[in-house]
């Protein structure tokens, strides 16, 4: 899983490098970079939420009082994506 991710990012870096060498003024469109950033942040948040969500459902199955706090912790990594969206407005 991680290996695929790292390989994909490496490949993107390579593409960026190649287009820079090609001599154009903008190697990689800024908007595409921002979009990529949000996408990767969302992927990271999703991975984190997977584990937390599983644990939260387990806790709720034992005691339904955990519903509120379980939900809160499950969506906590989502803040990462919100921060990543800020980048869109900067570029």
């Amino acid at each position: 899983m991680y290996e695929t991710l790292v390989a994909a990012i490496n490949m993107l870096g390579l593409i960026a490098q190649q287009s820079a060498e090609a001599g154009s003024t903008v190697a990689f469109p800024p908007a595409a970079g921002a979009a990529l950033g949000v996408g990767i942040a969302a992927l990271g948040a999703g991975i984190a939420e997977g584990g937390i969500g599983a644990a939260a459902v387990g806790a709720i199955a034992e005691d339904s009082d955990f519903f509120g706090i379980g939900l809160l912790f499950t969506v906590l990594p989502e803040t990462l994506v919100i921060l990543a969206i800020v980048v869109i407005f900067i570029v």
């Binding site: 991975i47 584990g51 644990a55 459902v57 387990g58 199955a61 034992e62 005691d63």
Partner: peptide
């Protein structure tokens, strides 16, 4: 183990076990 490479569901089971504990 953040993402289990096999299908193990450590986080789910451990949350339930802790609760039983």
């Amino acid at each position: 183990n953040v993402i289990s490479r096999d299908a193990s569901n450590y986080s789910y089971v451990n949350a339930r076990v802790r609760s039983r504990w």
